[in-house]
Design a protein around this nucleic acid. Structure first.
Lengths: 201, 201, 201, 201
DNA sequence: GTATAATCGAGACGGTACGTCCCGTCTTAGT
DNA sequence: ACTAAGACGGGACGTACCGTCTCGATTATAC
C-alpha cells in the first residue's frame, strides 16, 4: 500500500506501526507455512494486531501479501528506474534475465510471488491491481530499453514492443510458474538469442 | 485419480455412478462459485454422495477437478494424437494457436483450467502429476510437428525443440493466465510469425 | 448516571443535548432489538454521538438504560408521591394493582423494565443502585398506605410492613417476570383479596 | 437434554461423551466466571469439543446451562416426586421453604439459576421451555400437597391452587432474585404463617 | 474578547466472541 | 466391500462490539 491516496480510505489516523507489523508478519508466515496455510488470523496474531485492523485496510490475504512484496522490493532496491543500457541489447538482456532467474530462485521471493501470481489468476480485481501497480511499470521499463535499441538500429522501427516483451519474458515466466524446466543462466542466454534472432531487422 | 480412467481393471467394487456424479458436480460447481469456494463438502452434497467416497479415491479437490477436466476433454474430442501437418508449418501453427485461443476463451474450460494451473503452481506433487499426464503428451505432439518441419528443411536440424515449444506457446499461456492482453486470432498470427522468424535456418 | 438528573449542579460542561439524545436512542433501540442486542456502539451511532461521550458518563449499557427509564417515568407522570387513600384499603390496592398491570403490559415499559430487572439480578452494584433509587421510594410509598390502614384499624398494629408489601406485590412481579400466567384485572383482585384475608386482624 | 426424543434431532449418533463434557464444562465455567462472561467458545474449549458440536444440539448458552442444571438436579436427587406430607401443612411448608432457601444460598445453584432466570425473562422461547420442563412439574408437585391439605380439611375446597402456589412461593423467589431482603429460616416461617392465615377456611 | 481547557464527533486500535463453513476422520446402517 | 449420511474435533472465516486511545473542532467559562 505504498501510494497513499489510492487504497487508503482515510490514511490520516492510520497506524504506521501496525501496517509495518502486518506486512512483516505476512512475509514471515508465507515463508514458514506457505501461502495455502497463511491466514489473516495468523498474520494478526503474529503482528500483535486485531483482525479488524487488517480487514479495515485490505480485502484479502492476497492483497496483504501483494503490499508486503511491494514494500519488500521497494526497501531492497531504490526502484531501478531503468534496465542497463550498455549499447549491446543482447548482452544487456542476458544480464537482466540472469538476474531475474536468480531472484526467482531466492525462496524469499519464490514462495510469495508464486502465491500472488496464483491468486491473481482467479481474482480479476486483484489481477487489475497487480497489473496496474506491478506489471505496467515493469513493462514500461522493459519497453524503454527496447526503444533505445530501436534508436540504435538494433530493432526495427515498427516493432510491436508489447509483443516483443512478451516474447522475451513470457517463456521464462512460464517455465518458472509451471516448473516445466530448469532455470539456468544457459537457458537465459539461449532464450534471449533465439528471440532476438527473430526480432532483429 | 489414481487409475487412468479409461481402463480401471481392479477398482472392483468402485461405483461408476458415483464417480461420474462427483466429476460432474465438481465441474458444475467450479463454474458456479469458482475454485476458491469449491469444497469437497459441496461436491459431495451436489453429487448426492458421502464425503468419504470422495476422500477414498482422490487426495484433494484439485485432484478431483483434474480428473474432471481430463474426462471432459476426453469426452469432447477423441484425443487428437497429432497436430495438423499440411507441409506449411506457419499455417499449421497459426491454426493450432487460434484453436487453442478459442478453447481458452470457452468458460467451460477457462475457470477449471485456470484453477488447476494455479493449484499446480503451489503443489509440486500435483505439478508432477499434471506434467506427466497432461504436459508431456502435449509437448510430445508439438515436438513431433516441429520434427516434421525439420525433416522438411523448414527448421534447423540442431534446434532445441523444447525451447522452441516454449517460445511458441509460452507467451500465449502467459497472456491467458495473467490476462496481460486480449487473446485474438491476430495475436496468434503475430506471435507465430515473430517466433518462426527467429527459429528458421 | 452519577448525578440524580433533576439537579446536576457541577456537570458544568456537559452537553444536555447529547445526554437527551443518548437516553432517547437507548429507549428506541431496546424496543427495536431487545436488550441483548442493544450496544453502546449502537446507541452512540443512533444518537449521533461519540462512544466516549457515553463511556464518560455511564459505566455500562444497563446504567444508560436505567437513566433512560427513570427519565421516561419522570416525564410521563409527575411523581405520584402517594398511593390513593379512600379509606377502603382493599379497593385502593385493587386499583393500584390494576394500574400496575396496565403499565407492565405497555410495551414501552415492558421490554426495558424487564431488561433492567434481569441486569440487576447479576450485578450487585447495579442492584444496589436500583434498590436505592427505585425500590426504596416505591416501598416507602406502599408502606405509607399500609400504615394509614393500621391507623384505621384495618390492619394489625404489629404487622411486618415489609413482609406485607412483599406478599402483595411479590406474586404479581413474579408472574410478570416469569410469564407464569396472564396479567388480568381479575388476577389483581383475587390476589389482593387473598392476601388481605391473611393480613387483617 | 434428558428426555431423548423431545429436543434431539437425531439422537442416534450423538456422542454421550461430548454431551456430558459440555454440560460439566458449562457448570464449571459459570461458577468460575459468571454467566455474563460464560461463552460457547469457552465451554467448547473446556470440554475439548468443537464449537459446532454445541451449536448442533443447543441454540444458545442459556439452553446449555439449563440442561446442565437439569442434569445436575437429576443426578443429585432421584426426582423427589412429592413434597413431605406429615399431615401438618404448615410444618411441611416451612420445612420445604427452609430447604429451598438453603438451596438458593448454595453458590453452586445460585449463580446458574439466577443466570437462567434472567435469560428466560428476555427469551420467550427459552421461557416456554423452562416453564414446560421445570415449572410445570414443580408446580404440580406443590399443588398435590395442597390438594392433600384440602382433603384433610385444612384448606377450602374451592381454593385456586395456582394462585395459592404463587402466594406462597412468589414472595420468596422475588426476594431471592431482587435481593430485596435476607433469606433466613425466620423469613420462611413468617411467610408461610402469613399466607396460610389468609388461605385457611 | 480572547485564551484555554473540558467536552464533543469521529473512528482506529488490540481484543474477545460470535455463528458459519469446511476440513479430514470417524462411525453407523443399508445395499 | 462399498456406499450415503452425517457427527466429531478442529481451524479459519468475516462481523459485531468491547473499552481505550488519539485526533481536530467546538464551546463556554475565567482571564
Amino acid at each position: 500500500m505504498a501510494q497513499p491516496p489510492a487504497t487508503r480510505p482515510n490514511a490520516s489516523r492510520r497506524s504506521e506501526r501496525s501496517r509495518r507489523a502486518i506486512l512483516a508478519a505476512a512475509l514471515d508466515l508465507v515463508g514458514e507455512v506457505g501461502y495455502a496455510r497463511l491466514s489473516i488470523e495468523g498474520i494478526a496474531a503474529r503482528a500483535g494486531v486485531g483482525k479488524q485492523t487488517i480487514y479495515r485496510w485490505w480485502p484479502s490475504k492476497g492483497a496483504v501479501l501483494f503490499d508486503a512484496i511491494l514494500a519488500l522490493s521497494e526497501d531492497a532496491e531504490g526502484r531501478p528506474a531503468a534496465l542497463p543500457d550498455s549499447g549491446d541489447l543482447e548482452a544487456d538482456l542476458k544480464q537482466v534475465m540472469r538476474a531475474t532467474i536468480e531472484e526467482l530462485s531466492d525462496p524469499r521471493f519464490d514462495e510469495p510471488l508464486r502465491a500472488l501470481t496464483a491468486e491473481r489468476m482467479h481474482d480479476p480485481v486483484l489481477a487489475a491491481d497487480h497489473a496496474e501497480r506491478l506489471d505496467e511499470p515493469m513493462t514500461e521499463i522493459k519497453k524503454e530499453r527496447l526503444r533505445s535499441a530501436q534508436r540504435a538500429g538494433q530493432l526495427p522501427e515498427d516493432l510491436d514492443l508489447d509483443l516483443a516483451v512478451e516474447l522475451i519474458w513470457g517463456p521464462l515466466l512460464n517455465r518458472w510458474l509451471l516448473r516445466s524446466g530448469p532455470l539456468t543462466p544457459g537457458y537465459a542466454d539461449a532464450l534471449v538469442e533465439a528471440v532476438l534472432r527473430g526480432l532483429r531487422p
